[in-house]
Design a protein around this nucleic acid. Structure first.
Lengths: 341, 341
DNA sequence: CTCGATCTTGCAAACGTGTTCATAAAAAAT
DNA sequence: ATTTTTTATGAACACGTTTGCAAGATCGAG
């Protein structure tokens, strides 16, 4: 046995006894209710201070039916995009005296729902799910649990009542449009076969930009990675093995682009002289690759903040639908240039 | 008002009424206590199932004085090392049915302690602090709170009872030794002026390796960044402005090294032909820089896991001191080579 | 001095669960 | 058939807080 065995903490009753009042009065005094005489309140607060009293949130939660806690479920904590989002969530949560539970679901829908259930059992006030694979299927569940669920970048092909999504279409259209404007006509796309809705959208933007320029898409220039660096390398290898090389490559995300960049260098080709390269997300890293990467900035931190603010608003009793959409901003760096003549 | 207004959930009492037993029996049935007749238990479980009953952890926590929750406080959620550690923590926590609170303290000791307090008020069963600026000062606090605190990479110059630290000295000594073995004698160090204990240790290892080789350290080749990429660039510029250039640079961490790498390239120098470069941490990125970075691997995920396991052991009643130390492993990649003749 | 109005306070119930203790019922032993 | 033992159950309290209600205290006006 060690020294951390639970034994009685000092509670509101202890200081009630010490102050010679009822514990109800102590409770009121500590929340500076106007129902208690100022001097008594002061005296009680001093005693509480002296005793080192700290309120017990568990008891309070049981009484108030509120835990001041929100649960966040993500696919992979260590993913830089996710980490940024969570950082945004945590910032506004703490600013409003909420704590945040963090849990991983490894992109598995069943685990995702199990985690949501576990959050519910802990009676979180609200739940945030990033890159949900469950999407609008939550609507009945949230209603039954009486717990609001907000989705960030819903990956299920459904429109959910409360969500913050990045609309990838204009961003990728703009990125590919930028390549077209530079004079490229042979533009490849490296997608993410696990990217679900997001991959579809980015591919959509790619196609729209080509159509707008009257360029026919070429089947063999559409390949897929896994959204991670490795996948980018494999996909880029496939492209470089082709008889006809594209002069530019638009990638599902920065990680994919970084993988592609590496393979391009391995083949002694130069970016952007031989091949232009663009990504999506604007990871911290993107500005530090060789050359710095042209990409579409996804406001990760911001999106975490927005989702949390929506949640807090719902918890405050407002009931506006909140299908918020953000757009990416094209950031032109050194990895894109006109094609060789 | 929206649909998420709190109103009564179904509780153990509801299904007690439905089953025609007391709520005590239901409680027992649901934790499969041997005190209740198997058939009754079965019947109760079925009714609970049908009612969609989910236990309320708040009530349970109040009764058991346990929340099955651990709090994690970190300096910056989005820091890749931190994210990896948290990922390790979450994995073992969830495997043992613990939930984890995550909070940021932005490397500010006061915020750090405030967060610890807030975790205590929520009656977490234990607390993990990564890169604490408070260190052993927690000993009395943890005792008073009756809540175990485990430190990961304690940054306070004090030895704390429960901690998992990386001992940077052998790792950096090995890294610099590797440079020496390659034939380098002019080796610079780029430190982290906010690195506290860790910076001291890595510098120590550097000096020991030099001493071992009978090389005198040169004041002007010891510069400091901020542990981040930007700091690395500034520090490297300072080195490159010197009349006498080092032939190798050992960096406080990979981020610093990546910054340095960038500046070296800007000056049209090559790594490793002109300058060898080594880092510390083995970030995911380190193997994807140009050239891949020689570095010392810090087992981030592992350290998160270990700390959590220690915590769980303490919570199970064991009371062994646990000053665990891990070592880094030198990973030789392409950024180090013999100096030019 | 009395009466109503206004403060201040305590009592008790509530929140949802776990747990101890006593007792009833059933089973086993005599 | 009676006593002892075992098993199953419920009543009651505990956990720490909030809160509606009522009672008591205080005060000012008449």
């Amino acid at each position: 046995m060690n020294t951390f065995a639970r034994s009685s903490y000092i509670s509101i009753k202890d200081i009630a006894k010490a102050a010679g009042v009822s514990h109800a009065t102590v409770s009121r005094a500590l929340q500076s209710s106007s129902l208690v005489k100022p001097e008594t309140a002061q005296r009680i607060r001093e005693i509480a201070q002296r005793f080192g009293y700290r309120p017990n949130f568990v008891g309070r939660s049981l009484a108030t039916q509120r835990t001041q806690t929100i649960g966040v479920v993500v696919n992979a904590i260590a993913d830089p995009i996710v980490a940024e989002m969570v950082s945004g969530v945590e910032a506004v949560a703490r600013a409003h005296d909420y704590s945040v539970y963090l849990a991983n679901c490894h992109a598995d829908p069943e685990t995702e729902m199990r985690v949501v259930q576990s959050f519910h059992e802990r009676r979180v006030d609200g739940i945030l799910v990033a890159a949900s694979r469950v999407g609008a299927l939550y609507e009945p569940i949230a209603a039954q649990m009486r717990t609001p669920i907000i989705l960030i970048n819903n990956q299920h092909p459904s429109s959910y009542k409360y969500s913050v999504n990045i609309n990838s279409i204009p961003g990728s259209r703009e990125a590919v449009g930028h390549l077209v404007a530079l004079g490229h006509r042979d533009i490849a796309y490296i997608g993410d076969r696990f990217g679900y809705q997001t991959d579809l959208d980015r591919f959509s933007g790619y196609r729209q930009a080509l159509e707008l320029a009257g360029i026919a898409a070429r089947e063999e220039w559409i390949v897929h990675g896994d959204g991670k660096l490795e996948g980018g390398t494999l996909a880029m290898r496939k492209l470089l093995d082709l008889p006809a090389l594209p002069s530019a490559v638009f990638c599902y995300n920065d990680m994919t682009a970084i993988g592609a960049l590496r393979v391009i260098h391995e083949h002694s080709l130069r970016v952007p002289q031989d091949i232009s390269l663009a990504g999506f997300d604007d990871l911290f890293l993107a500005s530090y690759t060789e050359p710095p990467l042209t990409t579409v900035r996804q406001p990760k931190h911001e999106m975490g903040r927005m989702a949390t603010e929506i949640l807090l608003r719902i918890l405050a009793g407002e009931d506006s639908d909140a299908r918020t959409e953000v757009k990416g901003e094209l950031i032109v760096r050194a990895s894109t240039a006109p094609p060789r003549a």
